[in-house]
Amino acid sequence: MEAVKGTISEIAGMKMRKLLLQIVSFIMIVVSALMIWKSCMVLTFCESPIVVVLSGSMEPSFARGDILFLTNFDQDYTPGDIVVYTQGSYEIPIVHRLITVQEIEKDGEAYLLTKGDNNNVDDRGLYDNNLTYLNKKHILGKIRAVAPYVGILTILLNDYPYLKYTVIGGMLIMVLVAKDPQS
């Protein structure tokens, strides 16, 4: 009996278990962040409910680093709505303002034309494949709210890749080295 108890406590005290616990807690953090993101997607009907402004094409209303919140449950677009769209080979979503909405079907599909407030001409030059108008399938969502400069860290991480590696590496080390409150 005594010998069995000794073995169990020996296993319990092994370094291996501790390491596993650290890894699991790290996965927990990542997964819970992913869960929050995915539930936001479900609630807003939008592929990316939060975007960071990456360019100055909507100055002075939106500066680089501003965070925008979007929804997509109401697809009744009107001129003046600021929308996020992707089309063609551009993978980066673009935040611009709608200037023309012309219905193809009644209360349905429409021809949409966008323009950045700070640009001189409309976006036809940006569209791929000689597209003259966007359609509703290109639109990711409509801007609802703004929080200024909250996303400036994303801009910095994008502009300086070494900062990105340092931050991610530092976070990894912090999580793995941090004292577990249970032990």
Binding site: P60, S61, P79, G80, I99, T100, Q102, D117
Partner: peptide, 30 residues
Amino acid sequence: TYDLFAFLTVEYESNDGRKTEVTVWDDIIL
């Protein structure tokens, strides 16, 4: 209000009742 975006839109319906809205002029009011 950070700034105002003022714009003028022209709206009409096609002969079969589909709506069209076109911005013809806009300005950023600082």
